[in-house]
Design a protein around this nucleic acid. Structure first.
Length: 685
DNA sequence: AGCACGCCGACT
DNA sequence: GTCGGCGTGCTC
């Protein structure tokens, strides 16, 4: 996060350094480019662990085209047979530098082909990729593959539109509801680099607010980039931006545009023709010229984590960009992650929140039904829904649609206390307990300790259960109980963007809730309370609050009759935070707890997994930063084993470097079976 | 990751 | 003698 320290970088530079200079020689003595006859090339695939550049000779005919940043093809892996080069397969790559000489002592192979004269891997994009690779102990080529889209020749042939002049600074609009909102916009429009963690008010205004932040940055003559978790939210931001500025100032970078159109838009950004980008995860690398603002919406959404190696998270990539490219930063959401709270806590970013009066005016009424209430409720035992739920639904259906949030399939804890349903955790390290075989002894998913004498920390119970839910069926029952009301469903395969303002029951899984036209939903029933809260995940509380707030924000304010009913214990921290609509307080308390328990993100973690021998081998080569804890190893789900490494705050970069140095050293000794290294893994339980 | 080189044992 | 086992090391 903000703990990167310089000595680590020197260590990496050392392992990258190569031998002495040599005059470029080439294999067949072909005619070479006169001025700078050497091209330093990043080879796209192969040697993934070696992670280094290779020098090639530039034939005279390619002198003009082989500029830094263009795509080339090179022969790689050739062998010398009787003084002649033979074999070698063609690989794609990028020229990263033109030079007068090479560090490589041997003869240089010539570039095979310049694929295109389009400069795609610009120096600043390369620098960003390098930083991301280092941050995650990954290979540069892997990051470049994430950052530069595949070439589509047709899109390259077409010229990009002429850039538009900077727009006028926008009016504050609904930003006036936030104490420092108008000042934040003014700072952006002035060309400053304000950094904020923005807690958005519930309701439909956040896309327009995000659009105004982008417009204010454009007004300063700089570019802006906003990353959102899914196509629906990008579409909302896009619509708001188009309404504010018209078309032409921005592009949408999402997967559903198709590869060619997407590359066309990416090129418009890369060429400086378009200065603002709204997009999903991959847009985090968008090469916006003279970037003035990076914005991220709802950083707790898991789709901000890139699944491909080295699995960078959009929040971290944008934090790197904000620091390196000296830009403003806006982390927005209805709730805050602990990482967001940490940015405020460290003083790096300022909170951007509304007054309590504005919160009260915007939020719906939140009511709760706990287990004790349900036990007393005869109707609930029969129909599995408390009578308050029936009452709220009946009343709300008189004035508008009702949203029913049900748990997603497979979204249940592995093991929980049989009596109070609290997730079962390891007594030694608080990792999640798992049952590896039927009837066996549960053991910790982190440190592997068996938990034969487990008892519940909350209620003292000693029986464990694997959880099952029937909430979807409950929702269906609800539909049958109101036969004249239409039932719409949104989830998994069919996600609705919006529903009408007329009374209806809208059943949705978390994250797939449609926006209700008009005033918003009259009520929401959150049926997934205990399933969300009891997940064996560090983020269970944060995630529950995030999902509840997302649903509750679609409900009209309490003053207009909006009601939210959450089926969860009212004494639990996330439930209280929802009732009081105090996401900031919740995040601050979660952060304090993580610090106390030495959990991420206060401590940083890496997971090392692979065949047992290989993990031990890598570990022997790694010089871990002082104070590193080793948790495990435990058997990994896909075979082999997994080890967690935990370092104190401020040592994240050192841990990444140590692991990278170890990986390279191990590869140089003949490698063997590969070991996967991941920083800040998201699935550690 | 490929892929050739090399230094060992069993075969026509 | 020669074919081929895969252990080892290099790739601009």
């Amino acid at each position: 996060m903000t703990d990167e320290e310089p000595p680590a970088a020197e260590q990496l530079a050392l392992i990258r350094a190569t031998a002495r200079k040599a005059k470029p020689r080439t294999w067949r003595g072909a005619q070479l480019a006169e001025g700078l006859p050497v091209a330093r090339v990043l080879v796209d695939k192969g040697l993934l662990h070696l992670d280094q550049f290779f020098d090639y000779a530039v034939p005279a005919a390619m002198d003009a085209d082989a500029r830094p940043g263009v795509r080339v093809r090179v022969r790689f892996g050739a062998r010398v047979v009787k003084g002649r080069r033979e074999g070698g397969t063609l690989h794609d790559g990028f020229v990263v530098e033109r030079r007068a000489d090479s560090d490589y002592a041997g003869p240089l192979a010539p570039l095979a082909q310049v694929l295109s004269d389009e400069v795609v891997l610009t120096p600043s994009l390369l620098a960003l990729c390098r930083q991301v690779a280092d941050r995650y102990a990954g290979a540069l080529a892997d990051v470049v593959q994430l950052a530069v889209p595949p070439r589509m020749a047709r899109a390259e042939r077409d010229p990009s539109p002429e850039p538009l002049p900077a727009p006028a600074p926008p009016e504050p609009g609904s930003w006036a509801r936030y104490a420092t909102g108008p000042a934040y916009l003014q700072a952006l429009a002035r060309g400053d680099i304000p950094r904020a963690v923005w807690l958005a008010l519930p309701g439909p205004h956040w896309p327009a607010e995000l659009a105004r932040a982008i417009a204010a940055t454009l007004a300063s003559g700089r570019g802006a980039l906003a990353v959102l978790p899914d196509g629906r939210s990008v579409a909302r931001a896009d619509a708001a931006l188009t309404e504010l500025l018209g078309a032409g100032h921005h592009v949408m970078l999402t997967a559903d545009a198709g590869p060619e159109e997407r590359y066309r838009r990416w090129l418009a950004v890369s060429r400086g023709a378009v200065r603002a980008v709204v997009g999903t995860r991959a847009a985090m690398f968008a090469p916006v010229a003279d970037l003035g603002l990076v914005a991220l919406w709802d950083d707790g959404d898991s789709s901000h984590a890139e699944p491909h190696a080295p699995q960078p998270h959009a929040r971290d990539v944008l934090l790197l960009r904000a620091a390196e490219e000296r830009t403003a930063f806006l982390l927005g959401g209805l709730t805050s992650t602990v990482e967001g709270a940490q940015l405020v806590d460290s003083g790096w970013a300022l909170p951007l929140a509304a007054t309590r009066d504005e919160v009260r005016a915007a939020a719906p009424l939140i009511r709760t039904v706990g287990d004790a209430d349900q036990a007393r409720d005869a109707a609930a035992r029969a129909a599995r829904l408390p009578s308050l739920a029936w009452q709220v639904t009946r009343d709300a259906l008189a004035i508008g649609p009702v949203l029913v949030q049900v748990p997603r399939r497979g979204y249940v804890p592995k093991l929980a206390c049989d009596s109070c349903r609290t997730a079962a955790r390891c007594a030694a390290c608080a990792g999640p307990l798992e049952l590896r075989e039927q009837g066996g002894t549960p053991s910790c998913g982190w440190c592997g300790r068996p938990a034969a004498d487990w008892h519940c920390q909350e209620c003292g119970g000693f029986r464990l259960r694997a959880q099952v839910v029937g909430a979807r069926r409950t929702a269906e029952e609800l539909g049958r109980a109101f036969p004249r009301v239409p039932v719409r469903t949104s989830g998994r395969d069919t996600v609705l963007a919006s529903v009408g303002a007329a009374p209806a029951l809208v059943i949705a899984t978390p994250g797939a809730e449609p926006v209700a036209d008009g005033a918003g939903y009259a009520a929401a029933l959150l049926l997934d309370g205990w399933a969300l809260l009891n997940r064996p995940d560090l983020r269970a509380g944060e995630e529950a609050l995030r999902r509840w707030a997302a649903a509750a924000a679609l409900v009209r304010p309490a003053g207009e009759g909006g009601t939210v009913l959450v089926l969860a214990e009212p004494t639990l921290r996330p439930v209280q935070a929802l009732v009081r609509w105090d996401p900031a307080g919740h995040a601050v308390r979660e952060l304090a707890e993580r610090a106390e328990l030495r959990f991420p993100p206060v401590s940083r973690m890496a997971s090392v997994s692979g065949p047992a021998g290989a993990v031990a081998e890598l570990l022997a080569l790694v010089r871990l930063p002082p104070g590193t804890d080793q948790l495990g190893p435990v058997p990994a789900p896909g075979g082999g084993e997994r080890l967690l490494l935990r370092v104190p705050p401020g040592n994240g970069a050192a841990l990444a470097v140590a692991l990278k140095v170890g990986q390279v050293a191990r590869a140089a000794r003949g490698g063997g079976e590969p070991v996967s290294v991941r920083l800040d893994p998201t699935d550690i339980g």
